[in-house]
Amino acid sequence: MITIHKSRTTDFLNNMFSDLTAEPAQFFNFLRMSTSDFEIILQKLSPLIQKNDTSFRKAIPAKVRLALTLRYLATGDSFRSLHYLFKMSHQIISKIIHETCTAILMVLKDEVKMPSNEQDWLEKETDFHNIFPHCVAAMDGKHIVIQSPYHSGTEFYNYKHTYSIVLLALVDRTYKFIFADVGCQGRISDGGVFRNSLLFQKLSRGALNLPAPFTLSGCDNAMPYVFVADNAFPLQTNIMKPYPGEHPEGSLKRNFNRKLSQARIIVENVFGVMSSIFRVLRKPIPLQPDRASNIVMSCVLLHNFLRNSKTSHNLYIPPGFLDRIENDEVIPGTWRNEQPVDSALRSLPAVASRNASTPSNIRDKFAQVFVSHNTLN
């Protein structure tokens, strides 16, 4: 049975929680959520993480296990640093964090939901319509640096001479994940990261139930519903990416790139906010790939949980934290001031576009639509 360190009594831990609870702002800074949200998650997790007392010793309470895990996600502190705070051995800390994150994946799994039918996708498009008509989500991917796995050879070796796993995601206009896939190996070459993903497989099979193409004002052709992405992704019928290169001010291509950037900046903000709150994502994660993947997915699920929260919402994303668009220009949010120069959360490299005729023509038609809309406005 795992025990509390002899110098850290249950009474001491209870007093620590009482002190934190008495100061809501301090509690949020310590665990990245309000006391009421902590209690909600604790109630869900307790049956999965609570251990039984024995006649020889008391088990570590579920609330301490949850607090330890949230503190690790919030700071990315080493297990040695957490040992000084919680007075538990490195081995116990590692086990508790793994068990608690596994439980978080189980109880919060429904926080990330992909639209299941055309009507649900159309509701997502409504939020994007004034920025980029027929956009239903913004897409991005990040390398997440991890400790070199034992006996891994080159399996997780990526383009920057580090080891990584990859998070691919779709987000909606409310800054929430609607799809997240963690676990692609970092060694996969450029475009292979996306092509080996679950999202690509579903898109290729037509299994996402996207709405059928429909006409747009300023275009006589039926236009597909699309994800907006950066140059790390291939140009496809349902994926729009920027025109490569520099283009003169006022040109059709520059105008298209500006509109796409304004829609895609949503996903940049989601990754930026999540890594600002859960700073474990800012440092190489000293865990094996499967456990590191659970850490990352726990952050994704907690992000959506806190976005939906009534008590943590304003603390999680305070005014001015997000980028905003004014007079067709992007005003940077304050989260950008907090990003480290060398974060462990790294963008995927750009891939060369093969520019098949159909997707390229679709992009050209979207560009013409934007010119028509600007003329009408």
Rank of each mutant, 00 (worst) to 15 (best):
L68N: 06
V267S: 09
G191F: 12
I144P: 02
S357A: 11
E125H: 13
M88F: 14
H247E: 08
Y175I: 08
R57S: 08
F200S: 08
I40K: 01
Y243I: 01
L260N: 12
L105V: 05
M16A: 14
L105E: 13
P349I: 06
D364I: 11
P47E: 13
K124Q: 15
A59C: 01
F370T: 04
H151Q: 05
N231K: 15
T9S: 15
S7V: 05
C184Y: 11
N15S: 02
G333W: 03
D127G: 06
I40Y: 00
N374Y: 06
F256S: 04
L260Q: 06
F256H: 10
Q26P: 00
L216V: 01
S164V: 07
S347Q: 10
K283V: 15
N377Q: 13
K253R: 14
A212S: 14
L45D: 12
R279Q: 13
A169Y: 03
S164R: 11
L287I: 00
L252M: 10
L376H: 15
Y84S: 05
M88I: 15
R173Y: 13
F86G: 09
F177E: 07
R8L: 14
F233L: 07
L20Q: 05
N238P: 04
P289E: 06
D140R: 11
C299Y: 07
S189P: 00
I285V: 10
E155G: 08
T54R: 10
K142Q: 07
P213Y: 08
P234E: 10
L235Y: 11
D53F: 02
R205E: 02
E99L: 03
N377L: 13
P149Y: 02
E23Y: 00
K176M: 11
A74Y: 00
D172N: 06
H373T: 04
L122K: 15
S46K: 15
I104P: 01
L168A: 08
D127S: 12
P359M: 07
Y225Q: 00
V371L: 12
R254I: 02
F214Y: 13
E99N: 04
R363G: 00
R282Y: 10
H373K: 12
N209H: 11
S89D: 09
P242I: 04
H247T: 05
M114N: 00
K202S: 00
I266T: 15
V112G: 07
I266Y: 07
Q26G: 12
D342M: 14
V182C: 01
N196Y: 07
E99S: 03
L199S: 04
F38A: 09
C299W: 11
F132H: 12
V182I: 13
A344M: 09
Q119K: 12
M1S: 15
P289T: 09
T9P: 05
R307H: 03
K109V: 09
A25E: 02
F321L: 09
D110I: 05
T21E: 08
L302F: 11
T54M: 07
A169P: 06
E125C: 11
K124S: 14
D323R: 01
S164I: 04
N255A: 05
H134L: 02
D342Y: 15
H313Q: 05
H5F: 07
H151D: 12
F278W: 15
